[in-house]
């Protein structure tokens, strides 16, 4: 028996910064409801140490959530040389937008690049589909 399955799934807190990706942008233009756009968008890039702490391998799905929303995305290693534990990156997309706060200080500008969320293993669950 896998003793680990009785333990609560390790959950880590991250700050997510969004960015632009040429491959994802191209996929959106070709078909924003297609698999390629989903694969290049529903993606969170993390520090390898954070993945290890969650018991998540690169390519596995994770639950990313906060009080504004919850998505299931694929986790990847960022590939950045400088360690960035607690800091994660997502391409700007409807998936990242599910997690952006409605707090704008009355100035009309949401914090697209400053998202607080928790991440935990999705234990094989599928990536969230694009729908409202």
């Amino acid at each position: 028996m896998d003793f680990g399955s009785f333990l609560a799934a390790p959950e880590i807190k991250v700050k997510i910064v969004t960015y632009r990706d040429i491959f994802q942008n191209k996929a959106m233009i070709e078909d924003r409801f297609g698999e390629e756009y989903k694969n290049t968008s529903a993606l969170i890039k993390m520090d390898p140490a954070d993945l290890k702490q969650m018991n998540v391998k690169k390519g596995d799905t994770v639950i990313v959530k906060n009080s504004f929303g919850k998505i299931i995305a694929r986790a990847e290693e960022s590939g950045y040389e400088t360690p960035h534990k607690g800091l994660a990156y997502m391409p700007n997309s409807p998936w990242s937008n599910m997690l952006v706060s409605d707090e704008t200080g009355g100035m009309g500008v949401p914090k697209f690049k400053d998202i607080e969320a928790t991440v935990t293993s999705a234990k094989g669950a599928k990536v969230t589909d694009l729908e409202l």
């Binding site: 924003r32 504004f68 409807p94 937008n97 599910m98 706060s101 409605d102 409202l132």
Partner: peptide, 8 residues
């Protein structure tokens, strides 16, 4: 609906 936060 895609480019703005869902919360808004």
């Amino acid at each position: 609906l895609a480019s703005l936060p869902h919360s808004i």
